[in-house]
Structures are given as structure tokens and as C-alpha cells.
């Protein structure tokens, strides 16, 4: 898998992957993650600024993956959810820890984890995953 071994690709994405830095169109007040360079609503009338998300959100759907793509064999089973971020907009991400208790509607918060290891001698890709908040019922 060429793309996953790409060092510049990984490096370019580090800031947004580590810290949920997306963008916000100050014209229409819409937030985006991942960051975009053009607001799809306002197009050239829009003005995008860097935007830091808080790392809090809510699960709107999830799956437990048992048959992985190449490179994720040692992680199975793993949970991936679509998470609605507190500031608006959605992101797909791993839910870690208590995956037996994962449910739609539960609150999650971002935690820093390893996402992918490029074999034994390649780069370790870090980024944010999601953990169920306590007191979720």
C-alpha cells in the first residue's frame, strides 16, 4: 500500500490528525473537518480560517470491523464510529476502550493513540481516537 507508507502524506496531515484543526468559513459560519481550502457553500465568496475543535462529540453511527484491510490485521476487532463534533460537522474515527458499551447517542472525547504502524520498520502514524465519556447513560 503505497499511500500508507508515504512519509510526506503522513507529515502533511500531522497537525490536523493530532489536534482536530479544521477550518471555518467566516462568511457562512460553517465549520469543516478535515480542513478545506474552499467553502463548498459560499465558494469564492467564502473566507476560510483555521479552526480548532474541542475534541468532544457524540456517536451517530458505528460498526465493529472484524475483517480488516491490509495493515490493520492486529487491531481486529475494532470499532469505528461517525462522530458528530460539538461544534458541528462529522468525522469518522475509532472508538477505543469499552467497545462493548458503544451506542448511538453516547458522548465521546478525543484521545491520542497510534492509528497505524507501517510494518516493523516504517513510520508510526499517531492521531486521535475517541473514548466514551463517563456518565454516559
Amino acid at each position: 500500500m503505497v499511500h500508507k507508507s508515504s512519509v510526506p502524506l503522513h507529515w502533511r496531515m500531522q497537525k490536523s490528525r493530532y489536534n482536530l484543526i479544521g477550518s471555518k468559513c467566516v462568511t457562512c459560519n460553517t465549520v469543516f473537518f478535515p480542513s478545506r481550502i474552499l467553502c463548498p457553500k459560499c465558494r469564492r465568496k467564502g473566507k476560510l480560517e483555521s479552526f480548532q475543535f474541542s475534541g468532544k462529540g457524540e456517536i451517530i453511527s458505528y460498526t465493529i470491523i472484524k475483517v480488516p484491510p491490509e495493515g490493520f490485521e492486529k487491531n481486529i476487532p475494532y470499532a469505528i464510529a461517525v462522530i458528530k463534533l460539538e461544534e458541528g460537522t462529522n468525522i469518522a474515527g475509532h472508538v477505543v476502550g469499552d467497545i462493548e458499551n458503544i451506542e448511538i447517542g453516547k458522548k465521546v472525547r478525543a484521545v491520542f493513540r497510534k492509528i497505524y504502524e507501517d510494518g516493523k520498520d516504517g513510520l508510526i502514524h499517531y492521531g486521535l481516537k475517541w473514548e466514551l465519556e463517563e456518565g454516559n447513560e
Binding site: H3, K4, I60, S61, Y62, T63, I65, V67, P68, P69, G71, F72, N75, Y78, I80, A81, V82, A92, G93, H94, I104, I115, Y116, H125, G127
Partner: peptide, 18 residues
Amino acid sequence: ESSIGLTFTGLYALIARA
């Protein structure tokens, strides 16, 4: 999506669950 280990079955599973 792909970079975090999502698969097409995974994507459609997210749709199915919703």
C-alpha cells in the same frame, strides 16, 4: 477513511446501523 482502517463493508455498516 481508508487511513484509519475503514473498509467498504464498514462504511455500509455505518449506514445500516443508522
